[in-house]
Design a protein around this nucleic acid. Structure first.
Lengths: 108, 108
DNA sequence: GAAGCATGTAAGTTCAGGCTGACACATGGA
DNA sequence: TCCATGTGTCAGCCTGAACTTACATGCTTC
């Protein structure tokens, strides 16, 4: 895992609102408008956060038709298990910068 | 663990530069100026990041006197092991908001 | 057709965090 | 004394993220 990939997830999860979003849909899938009402935030804003969470692979959304024929966008948690230690981070950063500067080998 | 505490750590670790800082001192303790040179960033900036990491409990610094009598501020990793799952988050957020709105119990 | 509720998106604004440059101060050595 | 190197802090700029308002669109139901 590169540091960039790790960073996307960490940055995604490192925000109060997004933590609330995760906590909310941890209780079950929900469509956007409903979720926005529950969390007391505007839909456009929620959209942004959901987008970010989705890009990080933490949630996944799917557009579905309700009985009444209305289109509802449901979001649910994607199972994730992030283990963060100094080693994890060091490894990720190392993977990100392949060229060991201190080394004289010019394996370019 | 409240969501705030969790957030401090996650936000601290959710930044490229700070990941690099952690990765760097994962290889051993180092004083600020040296660290700044290695990472190629200004000391004031590094200070800010170190402060944030320290507040999150990820690193710890100590001012020491070198042989030459110069004061050096050494930073080293604080052992940490962060496990992030939907449950972790949900629990933290729940701990943050003690009043269960949907519940009628007034166990305040 | 108007009202209600849903998805999307495109403005625009505000604000915190990231970052730079310059400073004060201390010490050791030429 | 002057220079190099270290700590520590402050003022200020600037970018990007967060957030709001407003709109277009589609579907039902009255």
């Amino acid at each position: 895992m590169t540091s960039e990939e790790l960073l996307v997830v960490l940055a995604a999860v490192g925000h109060a609102q997004r933590l609330r979003v995760i906590a909310e849909i941890a209780g079950g899938r929900m469509y956007v408008s409903e979720l926005a009402r529950r969390l007391g935030m505007s839909r456009p804003l929620l959209y942004m956060h959901l987008e970010r969470l989705e890009k990080a692979g933490l949630v996944s959304g799917s557009l579905e038709l309700s009985d009444s024929g209305k289109a509802l966008k449901y979001f649910e948690l994607a199972p994730f298990d992030l283990h963060v230690t100094a080693e994890t981070i060091a490894t990720a950063v190392a993977a990100d910068a392949p060229e060991t500067v201190s080394d004289t080998k010019g394996t370019t």
